[in-house]
């Protein structure tokens, strides 16, 4: 059974929002992902925390591309951390890592977000 996606939105700084991913990202995850993005508001940088990601299929990759387009349109930076080695490779294969900067830890991601 798929684990429905939930996202908690944190704002560790005035211009940065962290979206804590928990569960699966599939094509059916559009609503929670876009609602969390909307909750992040006008933050200059959106940091995706994938530590709680349990499963993602190609539909999930498509959703991340759509999220990236929205962030680019709003002139927001999109960063990520907490990816497993496998999903890091998927980001490299699809070359999404050229548009979403990936970091090993939250501290590194937040530091880059503040630049």
């Amino acid at each position: 059974m798929p684990n429905a996606l939930t996202l908690d939105v944190r704002q560790p700084g005035s211009s940065t929002a962290v979206l804590d991913v928990q569960g699966d990202i599939t094509a059916d995850s559009e609503k929670p992902l876009m609602e969390a993005y909307a909750e992040a508001g006008s933050a200059k940088a959106i940091v995706l925390n994938f530590s709680g990601l349990e499963y993602m299929n190609s539909g999930g990759i498509g959703l991340l591309v759509t999220l990236l387009v929205r962030a680019n349109r709003a002139k927001q930076k999109l960063l990520a951390f907490g990816l497993t080695e496998h999903y890091r490779q998927i980001f490299e294969l699809t070359r999404i890592d050229e548009a979403i900067e990936i970091f090993g830890s939250e501290d590194e991601a937040l530091q880059a977000a503040s630049k």
Partner: peptide, 17 residues
């Protein structure tokens, strides 16, 4: 970064240059 293998790793293409 974590090293836990996902349940659907075999469904994805392996990385290629």
């Amino acid at each position: 970064m974590t090293t836990q293998e996902p349940t659907n790793a075999e469904n994805w293409a392996k990385p290629v240059d």
